[in-house]
Design a protein around this nucleic acid. Structure first.
Length: 501
RNA sequence: GCACCCUUAGCUCAGUUGGCAGAGCAUCUGACUCUUAAUCAGCAGGUCGGGGGUUCGAAUCCCCCAGGGUGCACCA
């Protein structure tokens, strides 16, 4: 990139010249360390009027107001911004060096706290050390305060492409971006603590797999040279985690990346983060309560509330979430019993409710499609949709009472799916039949149908206890809790096309 | 994958009917010891995303390409 960079070259050259000039004055432009004993936030929080407290802080110069023999500047550290004040008569040569510094340079500041006559808590500099000379100009944004005291940002750095490709710049100049990712980290660690406190073991299973399974999706294919064999990047953790339940663990979970070779949009990135949990001797009813408890716990832990607003929708994670039977709700909305209806009737119904049937075949997929049109958009408050057609769920256990459905639920919030869970199928004979059915789907052209995993069958043959399993898409959960409508805004480095030139 | 929209200075954006490519900020020069979107004066900065076409003349109209965004399709 960087086409047409004459002007940019001028700016880069200027900074290079300054670097040379600083070196010739004996200033090391890339220092080795600097010990701090405070930060921008702590200084502001603990400031007492008339107290000149000695502090050492470090940060990036983000605004400069040079006035001949005295200057103000704002430096930004990982906690925020604070103003510094420098006088030539006090810091002498360092003031000359300061005049060669730019927005973007990282400095170490020694000084004492004070309040300016306009009331801003600041640091009066007694020693200024250049820590890193910035060789490239940052996008300049400016902040002001309107009459109501709200912060107004001018010339905000908004180019989506540049922000995603150069996330480091985005993080420097758009503080709210940083907040989202801090929240993301806290959500993940809160979830991890919750699961560990319940006594479940965090494990790691293969990302490179000779067979892919556990979900309906197209995989990425890669090649191992020494084994001279193709391997798949995992599309789900499920089948390996269930092998570990066979192995006797009292509950295992994994938080990690899955990969699906499919389209990209506001809710899909080719690599995404999943949390999968498997707990022996439990079923999907137990898991529903568990999800309610876990999500509530995370929202209270990280946000101190169970109430959120997502994309103008009010959401409350306080239990108990609504239970919606897929079969019954479809009966109510369309008047047909989808389990008894034949494919033609279902197809007619699908057309009637306005489904786009391109590329959709088979009873199960038609049902799924009708559901997504007539039910899903109304699931704003946290809800569990329960009891799915067996054809859609080859790894789930048949319902103990209802014919044709499995014990499965998906959690929906704000019309979006956030988790998927079931009573796990542990009958190896039936599992084999279900896999064989998937193979038939595949032969009929369903590219996403499961492949048969004989080692997994073998594991089940040794005996897997009744088990409840759960998958939560972390990225989407983070989107909900941080009110982001694009998955790209909760992933540091979303997948982009390769930069040309 | 399909449709539509966007791409002009380092950043944010104007640019009329096709008629000399503009502003603010940043940079540069100078002034300025409590400023805060600092201020004041001056200078400079462009292959208008790339390529082709129409035209006396294209940032502007047409075609192709690239990147990005949005919607649809598919999926979690």
């Amino acid at each position: 990139m960087d086409n047409n960079q004459n002007e940019l070259n001028v700016l880069l050259k200027r900074r290079k010249d300054e670097l040379t000039e600083l070196k010739s004055r004996g200033v090391e432009p890339f220092a080795y360390e600097f010990e701090v004993n405070s930060n921008s936030k702590e200084i502001k929080d603990k400031f007492v009027d008339d107290e000149k407290k000695e502090v050492k802080i470090a940060g990036r110069l983000m605004a400069l107001r040079k006035m001949g023999k005295a200057s103000f500047a704002h430096i930004q550290d990982s906690f925020g911004r604070i103003q510094i004040y420098l006088r030539k008569d006090e810091i002498k040569d360092q003031y000359t060096a300061f005049k060669l510094m730019d927005i973007g340079d990282i400095v170490g500041v020694e000084g004492y706290t004070f309040k300016t006559k306009t009331g801003e808590i600041s640091v009066h500099v007694t020693n200024l050390t250049l820590l890193t000379k910035s060789m490239r100009p940052l996008p300049i944004t400016k902040e002001s305060t309107d009459e109501e005291g709200n912060k107004v940002i001018h010339d905000q750095f908004v180019d989506k492409e540049l922000r995603y490709r150069q996330r480091y710049v985005d993080l420097i100049v758009n503080p709210e971006v940083r907040d989202v990712f801090v929240k993301r980290s806290k959500i993940t660690s809160s979830m991890r603590r919750f699961l560990e406190a319940k006594g479940y073991l965090e494990v790691e299973t293969p990302i490179l797999q000779p067979l892919y399974g556990g979900a309906a999706a197209k995989p990425f294919i890669t090649h191992h040279n020494a084994l001279d064999t193709d391997l798949y990047l995992r599309i789900a953790d499920e089948l390996y985690l269930k092998r570990l339940i066979v192995g006797g663990f009292n509950g295992v979970f994994e938080i990690s990346k899955d990969f699906r070779n499919e389209g990209m949009d506001k809710t899909h990135n080719p690599e995404f983060t999943m949390m999968e949990l498997y707990v022996p001797y439990k079923d999907y009813n137990w898991m529903m309560s568990f999800v309610e408890e876990m999500i509530l716990n995370i929202s209270n832990d990280v946000f101190n509330t169970s109430k959120f607003n997502y994309d103008s929708m009010d959401i409350d994670f306080a239990p108990k979430w609504k239970r919606v039977s897929m079969i019954n709700s479809l009966k109510e909305k369309t008047g047909i019993d989808i389990l008894k209806a034949d494919e033609n009737l279902i197809k007619e119904t699908a057309k009637k409710v306005g489904c786009d049937l391109d590329g959709i075949s088979g009873k199960a997929k038609l049902i799924d499609e009708i559901f997504s049109v007539v039910i899903q958009p109304d699931l704003i408050e946290p809800s569990f949709v329960i009891d799915y057609p067996v054809e859609l769920s080859p790894l789930a256990k048949r319902h103990r009472n209802l014919e044709g459905v499995v014990e499965r639920f998906e959690g929906y919030v704000a019309g979006r799916e956030i988790c998927n869970a079931f009573s796990e199928l542990n009958d190896p004979i039936e599992q084999k039949k279900r896999f064989e059915e998937q193979v038939r789907f595949k032969e009929q052209g369903d590219e996403e149908a499961h492949v048969i995993d004989n080692d997994f069958i073998r594991a089940l043959e040794y005996g897997m206890p009744p088990t409840a399993g759960l998958g939560i898409g972390l990225d989407r959960l983070v989107m909900l809790l941080t009110n982001q409508t694009s998955i790209k805004d909760v992933i540091f480095f979303p997948q982009m096309k390769i930069e040309s030139k």
